Amino acid sequence: MDADIARILRETRTVAIVGASANRARPVYDVWRYLERASDYELYLVNPTITEVDGTPTYPNLSALPVVPDLVDVFRRQEFLRDVLDDAVRVGAKTLWLQSGLWDPAIARDGEAAGLQVVMDRCLKVEHARLLSVS
């Protein structure tokens, strides 16, 4: 599994962070700031209820992004995973990444059947730091 995740992280160029928040106490904010600092990824924040986070624009959904994201990093409650999966498939994303605490075998099955790589219950920040950081 580590080899697969490391490959995904190396091949990723664009990341959409779904469920972005301007609240600095939320894990999504920390992950975004880490990725800004420690990766070369182009990052896009997605949240239909806010227009920006610290001056960075947010987008209402994946189809509003100016690019097709390679990886969709999901910080949404369980009941919204199906909608995010459908959006990720619709826009042609390559990977659906469900953050720590998110696990749904039906979403994984349907995502993989649609051609997506699916990672569940893992923190993108933690895995990036663990597998790609240079010591």
Score class of each variant (00 low, 15 high):
G101M: 04
W97F: 09
D40M: 06
L65R: 03
R33Q: 14
G19W: 02
T14K: 13
Y41W: 02
V15T: 08
L35C: 11
G101W: 01
S100Q: 12
Q78E: 11
V74L: 11
A93R: 01
D54C: 01
V46H: 05
L85G: 12
P27E: 13
V53Y: 07
Y41T: 07
T56S: 07
Q99A: 11
L62A: 03
T95R: 00
R13W: 03
L62H: 01
P66F: 07
R90K: 15
V74F: 09
V89Y: 05
R10Q: 14
T49F: 04
L62Q: 01
F75Q: 12
A6V: 06
R33W: 04
L62V: 01
L96A: 01
R77P: 02
R82Q: 10
R37W: 10
V74A: 09
A20Y: 13
K94E: 00
A3T: 14
L71H: 09
D30N: 14
V53G: 11
T58F: 09
E52T: 02
R77T: 11
G92R: 06
D83E: 15
L81R: 00
R33H: 10
T14S: 15
W32I: 08
V46A: 09
D87S: 15
A25R: 15
A93C: 04
R7E: 11
Y29F: 15
R37K: 15
Q78I: 01
T58K: 08
L43E: 07
V15F: 08
N61C: 13
Y34D: 06
R82F: 02
F80C: 01
V53L: 10
R37C: 13
L43Y: 01
Y59N: 06
N23D: 15
L71E: 08
D70T: 11
R90G: 12
V28N: 10
L71S: 11
T14D: 11
